[in-house]
Design a protein around this nucleic acid. Structure first.
Length: 220
DNA sequence: TGCCAGGCCGGGT
DNA sequence: ACCCGGCATGGC
C-alpha cells in the first residue's frame, strides 16, 4: 500500500481533517521551549498525565527558560508529579531552562536540521525521540519521531524490520513517507497504536488496516 | 493487579 | 554497538 493511501485511509478512519494538523503545528511553532518541556513531560507517560503535569506547572511558572531557570526544583517536582519520573524530569527541565536562556533554543532550531538534532540530543534528558518531536513541530525540518507506538505499529505493518533500532526505524519511515506527510504519519500511527494496534489485546477485527496488515495474515 | 504509558541515562558487556 | 536496571505516577 502506498504511503499516501495509508495516510488517507487512517485520516478517514479517524475523521481528522487537514486543517487540524495545520492548526496543531501552527500552535506549537511559536513556542519551541514549551514544546520541549511538554515533550520531556510526555516521556514514557500517557498524554493525560503529561497534560496534567504541564498545566500544574503553568499555574506556577511561565514556561520560558528565564522563568524556569530561576524556579525551585522542588516546586517543579511537586507540580509535575502526575507525569511520573518526576524527580528526573524536574531536574532536566530546570537544567534545560538554565542552558537555553537568551533565545538559545531558537538559534539551535535555525541551524541545519541534522546539526540541530545533534545539539538537541546533547542536552541532558533530550534523546532522539524528544529531539525529533521538537524539530518536527517547531522547526522547518521534516524528521520522523519514533515513539513506542510508532515503533510497534510500524513493525507489525511491515514498514520497518522487526529488529530495527530507533535510528533505523526513523530512516525507513522517512523513506516511506514523503516529508510533507511526516507530521500526519507520526500522529496517525500513534493514534492507530493507541486505538487498535495496542501492545496488549490489539483490536485487529475492527482495525482500519487489518486487510493489509501482515500480522493478521491477510498478506500484502 | 501487574503491565503499560508519545524515553533517557549510566554502567556493563 | 547493544542490553539492562532505574526512574514513578496513574489507568485499565
Amino acid at each position: 500500500m502506498s504511503p499516501k493511501e495509508l495516510i488517507s485511509r487512517l485520516q478517514k478512519a479517524f475523521e481528522i481533517r487537514d486543517e487540524e494538523f495545520i492548526a496543531l503545528k501552527a500552535s506549537k511553532t511559536k513556542n519551541p521551549f514549551e514544546v520541549l518541556v511538554a515533550t520531556v513531560l510526555s516521556q514514557n507517560t500517557t498524554d493525560k498525565n503529561s497534560f496534567r503535569a504541564l498545566n500544574n506547572l503553568k499555574k506556577i511558572y511561565k514556561i520560558t527558560p528565564e522563568a524556569l531557570a530561576k524556579a525551585d526544583v522542588k516546586e517543579i517536582e511537586q507540580a509535575i508529579r502526575p507525569a511520573g519520573l518526576y524527580r528526573q524530569k524536574a531536574r532536566v527541565i530546570k537544567e534545560l531552562a538554565v542552558n537555553l536562556t537568551n533565545g538559545k533554543l531558537n538559534k539551535i532550531l535555525s541551524m541545519d536540521g541534522e546539526s540541530a538534532r545533534e545539539v538537541l540530543k546533547s542536552l541532558r534528558g533530550v534523546g532522539p525521540k524528544t529531539a525529533d518531536v521538537v524539530l518536527l513541530m517547531t522547526a522547518n525540518y521534516p524528521t520522523f519521531p519514533v515513539d513506542t507506538h510508532v515503533m510497534r505499529v510500524s513493525k507489525r505493518l511491515g514498514l520497518v524490520p522487526e529488529d530495527a533500532n530507533y535510528e533505523e526505524a526513523r530512516r525507513f519511515l522517512m523513506e516511506f513517507f514523503s516529508p510533507e506527510d511526516y507530521l500526519k504519519g507520526h500522529l496517525l500511527l500513534i493514534k492507530l497504536g493507541r486505538t487498535y494496534c495496542k501492545a496488549r489485546n490489539p483490536k485487529c477485527e475492527s482495525c482500519p488496516l487489518s486487510d493489509i496488515c501482515p500480522k493478521i495474515g491477510v498478506r500484502e
